[in-house]
């Protein structure tokens, strides 16, 4: 009874009871093992960032074939998208556009240098080459007149809008820029500017275009005739109705020539 009177229970006493709440001994054993496992996983977990990166690279490495195929497909699509042209008309339009952009001097140089490369072909077929150059020059003049550098076309100069000093100065600046721009700066990735293709296509185009309008048989005949009968070349090429009769004459003259040669040879030996 004395103890009851002397001891008054306070809030602090009750709260302090919670201090005496302790888990059993086996709890600490489990706590220790879990703690150890978490500690180890934390130590290993520090590497998981690198492991994640390494894993990503490993995935890339494992499936490099599909990734490579996809990349190749993407490159091909991009190349087709930026470079691809469907019809000869489109080729011509693209080359015309790019011809306008490229420097005339460079194009002319390419045109002159290209036929010289195969020496024997040039010797055998001298006629188409100058015509190709001439045609290319004609193209150059025409295209240059419709290019963005000089916006007013030659053929429709009367219908062109009035040119302002500002547009003239811009055109001049653009022309200067294109003149001064090196080849590597002009060419975009995947030939985006189409200048590289145009530079390569222009001589090819001008070389092939005259041949499209020329009969190969006619060319061969005129080549044969040129050595034997220089005046017949123009005759055959000009009038197709005379081909049959003229060819008889040609063969006769060739026979005569050959017999003459033989006789000459006979006299010599």
């Amino acid at each position: 009874m004395k103890r009851e009177d002397s001891r008054k229970i306070t809030v602090e006493d009750l709260i302090r009871l919670k201090r005496a709440e302790r888990p059993p001994a086996e709890f600490w054993a489990r706590f220790e093992s879990e703690m150890r496992a978490k500690q180890l996983s934390a130590i290993v977990g520090r590497r998981t960032v690198w492991d994640g990166l390494y894993g990503a690279f490993a995935i890339l490495r494992r499936s490099r074939l599909p990734f490579g195929a996809a990349a190749a497909a993407a490159v091909a699509w991009a190349g087709y998208h930026y470079v691809g042209v469907d019809s000869p008309a489109a080729v011509h339009a693209a080359s015309s556009r790019s011809l306008a952009k490229t420097a005339p001097a460079r194009l002319e140089q390419a045109l002159v240098q290209k036929p010289r490369a195969p020496e024997s072909v040039a010797a055998r077929a001298p006629a188409p080459v100058p015509s190709a150059i001439a045609e290319a020059r004609r193209d150059l003049v025409t295209v240059g007149s419709v290019s963005h550098v000089s916006p007013a076309p030659v053929s429709s100069s009367s219908e062109a809008p009035a040119r302002t000093p500002f547009s003239d100065s811009v055109s001049a600046m653009l022309a200067d820029f294109h003149q001064a721009m090196p080849d590597t700066a002009v060419h975009g990735m995947f030939g985006a500017d189409r200048e590289f293709e145009a530079a390569a296509q222009a001589p090819r185009l001008s070389m092939s275009e005259p041949l499209l309008h020329t009969d190969p048989l006619e060319v061969r005949r005129s080549r044969l005739l040129e050595s034997a009968l220089p005046s017949a070349t123009r005759l055959v090429a000009g009038d197709p109705t005379k081909v049959h009769g003229d060819s008889e004459r040609i063969y006769e003259s060739m026979d005569r020539y050959e017999s003459n040669e033989r006789s000459v040879v006979g006299f010599r030996f």
Partner: peptide, 22 residues
Amino acid sequence: SLESIQEEDAVSREVIDALTDK
């Protein structure tokens, strides 16, 4: 969840005794 109170603590034992007696 409840933990068992360890009555080794003198104050805790005293409080519990008082409450039980009352």
